[in-house]
Design a binder for these strands. Structure first.
Lengths: 343, 343
DNA sequence: AATCATTCTCAAAGCGCTTTGGATGACCTA
DNA sequence: TAGGTCATCCAAAGCGCTTTGAGAATGATT
């Protein structure tokens, strides 16, 4: 069923039917009702392509997901983020177009989306330090919004980020207050902006408290279970092991816990662990009482919000750029406790 | 830059330029080269929408991801599956359109994709037993391909599946051969077809070996870490604990391992564990030597293949339906060993 | 009864592409 | 020279929608 058939069916012109369906005022309520009813009955929906051609809008938002080139790894948080964004798009009649792409092809993908006029805007995932994508999108004139920020980029842009710096500095302070003095950091890849900020927060909190920044207590890598395990095992086996560990992800925290328990240590007593928790649907941090003490911020909620910000930008390009900085909650669970006595 | 501008620029008609770009024979090689060069120089790409309108193809494939209604959970395997499918689409100039949707809205989403002519076909994720989506898509006349199968559906359809039944029956046999007689199953939700088949394979292997099927040794639920932990803990604490555990996912296997180690048991000696491993990029089963003995099948590869099958179906609707049944590898790792002596 | 404002409705153009059905020469053949 | 083939290229229609610029119909006003 297309517009033509529908309008013939109703004995009206295409114009009238189109206007009735799109809420224009120059249609009588009676006619509008009749049209809407028929549209429903015939399950009529305007062709996205035709509508897009006519209006010049694509009614679609692109998500370009970078593939970590090293391990061809898809960041596991993106499922939840996208679920959140999808909710927003569904509500606004937008489609989500997904490209998963290796770093070296990214520029071509953005250019393609632009020149094929396939999307009205894009979401930038996983920003790195000095991310060149921001300048590229600026040049292309393609509206975009960034999930996170890119330290070192001077250009203004729309973003939504968790306050990673403050989250990790608070977590470090929390451990300090429990008496911990050797606090380790098992971080994500520090070319990623979020990981860089987390380290800054961690380091700042240590420095404020006149604690040394010890490279032996810092690890950075892709946040897998095995990376968490190896990093923790390695540090725990050293001559001066940490009494507390700060993890960048629940997945690597699971690995850290394994290393801890494997050594006969009890998490929350012998060793404290704090992790960041993205509140992923398939990786819940325990039930009512969290297992891990965590800095928590829902990535799904971030998806909802950032998508809304981008749609807003697309609809009102003249408005100023929006930013949202979300504070993570520090939730105390069973994985932290006072530092054990030294002796 | 659009076709009109490009052709004016070249002093050719739109027809010729279009033909040159689309590989039609009635264009001289010289002209074609000139056109291609200019297209590259101006970074011209035909508008997807206009092309779609003119050809009647959408040049897009829809992926409808069901949201597990209970916990609003996005299946963690879908990231890798989609990465694989995306590779195929990129190679063929197709776009991927994603909808993440709660069960109750699924029908509307499929109808919408069809009536808006937004996609040429869809991939069905996470088929359940007697899945009604298959009949729906059949009725709608929307080409589709299923990742998995739906037991109970009599209609023919294109699918790609891991041989879950044989994988789990082989894994069970493997444990039996090691001397295990009390083998537990920590399965996914058994409304999901894959989980159903895994249980069948498990049960069949037990029955063949004249072992009883003990409901006390079987758990079914969403495959989270905590579910694996609780299920394993529960069974290990019973009067007659299992000596081996079969897990449906690496994530729940991690939980099971935690329960095992928490009880001072050694995995691979006191308790054996076999898990299914989807070879997810962010959840690797150890390095060179797998940690878990596992039935392994790359879900990313499945994405690549199924996408290719669907594109083939879209391009050649008259051809017969394709099916692919992949056998999982049984990889022996460190988590299995002979059953401990009874005495 | 004539005029005007107000609703409501319509025909047709246009969005950027593909594709049909020629048209135009150039080059042979007889 | 006329007729026939090719090899190239083109004008225009059409895909399904929105939107412009008007045209009828209605009712109110003079």
């Amino acid at each position: 069923m297309n517009l033509k058939e529908l309008s013939q069916n109703l004995g009206l012109s295409q114009t009238t039917v189109s206007r009735a369906l799109n809420g224009y005022p120059e249609v009588s309520p009676a006619t509008r009702a009749r049209v809407e009813q028929a549209a429903k009955a015939f399950n009529y929906r305007p062709s996205t392509r035709a509508k897009g051609l006519a209006t010049g809008k694509a009614l679609a938002i692109g998500h370009v997901i970078p593939l970590s080139t090293k391990h061809e790894m898809v960041n596991p948080i993106f499922g939840d983020f996208i679920a959140g964004a999808g909710e927003t798009y569904a509500r606004h009649g937008y489609e989500m177009i997904l490209s998963i792409v290796a770093d070296e092809d990214e520029e071509q993908v953005y250019r393609g989306l632009k020149s094929r006029r396939a999307v009205d805007g894009v979401i930038v995932h996983g920003p790195r330090m000095n991310d060149q994508r921001i300048a590229l999108l600026h040049d292309l004139g393609l509206p975009f919004a960034v999930h996170g920020r890119a330290s070192g980029c001077t250009l203004p842009y729309t973003w939504l980020d968790v306050n990673n710096r403050s989250a990790f500095s608070r977590a470090t302070a929390f451990l300090y207050d429990l008496g911990h003095r050797r606090i380790a950091l098992i971080n994500g890849l520090e070319v990623m902006d979020f990981a860089h900020r987390r380290r800054e927060g961690y380091a700042a909190a240590l420095t404020e408290r006149h604690l040394p920044i010890d490279p032996a207590l810092m690890r950075s890598g892709e946040m897998t279970e095995i990376f968490g395990y190896r990093s923790a095992a390695d540090m725990l086996d050293s001559k001066t092991p940490p009494t507390a560990i700060l993890c960048s992800s629940l997945i690597s925290a699971l690995g850290a816990r394994r290393a801890i328990e494997e050594r006969g240590l009890r998490m929350g007593q012998d060793i404290s662990v704090v992790t960041h928790d993205d509140a992923l649907s398939y990786l819940q941090n325990g039930g009512d009482v969290p297992i891990f003490t965590a800095t928590r911020s829902s990535v799904r909620d971030a998806g909802r919000r950032l998508a809304a910000m981008l749609l807003d930008r697309v609809a009102n390009p003249q408005d100023g750029l929006q930013h949202q900085l979300l504070e993570a909650e520090l939730m105390v669970g069973q994985s932290t406790g006072p530092a054990p006595d030294k002796d």
